[in-house]
């Protein structure tokens, strides 16, 4: 069971308080109506499945109700960082390719 730092509450809390919401940094296309089916399909359904660093959204569902990002290693389940919506991650696959 994960121990997750909520960047809004400023505390580690038990995983039971959170819901995972999938891959982070997927911006909704600016003009959906101008997307081709393929572009829209990619936005809707296609997700990364990395072995290692993964940026994902969690929500502090039974806490402050804030959505935030988590950088997690999908192999070791280590959480490298939590950061607010709109912020950029410090740990990325590019700078931590071995984990």
């Amino acid at each position: 069971m994960f121990y997750i730092y909520c960047p809004y509450c400023g505390e580690h809390r038990e995983e039971e308080e959170f819901h995972p919401k999938g891959q982070a940094h997927l911006a909704r296309p600016e003009n959906p109506d101008e997307c081709t089916d393929e572009e829209w399909g990619n936005y809707l359904y296609f997700r990364d499945n990395p072995r290692g660093i993964h940026h994902e959204i969690w929500v502090h569902a039974i806490g402050c109700r804030k959505f935030f990002n988590v950088t997690r290693d999908t192999q070791t389940y280590e959480i490298k960082e939590s950061y607010r919506m709109g912020a950029t991650p410090e740990v990325t696959h590019a700078n931590d390719p071995l984990s």
């Binding site: 909704r28 929500v59 959505f67 919506m85």
Partner: peptide, 13 residues
């Protein structure tokens, strides 16, 4: 409610 918050917080803050 969570879905509404999701769009508000992540797409239209």
């Amino acid at each position: 409610l969570e879905w509404l918050e999701f769009y508000h917080q992540t797409e239209w803050p």
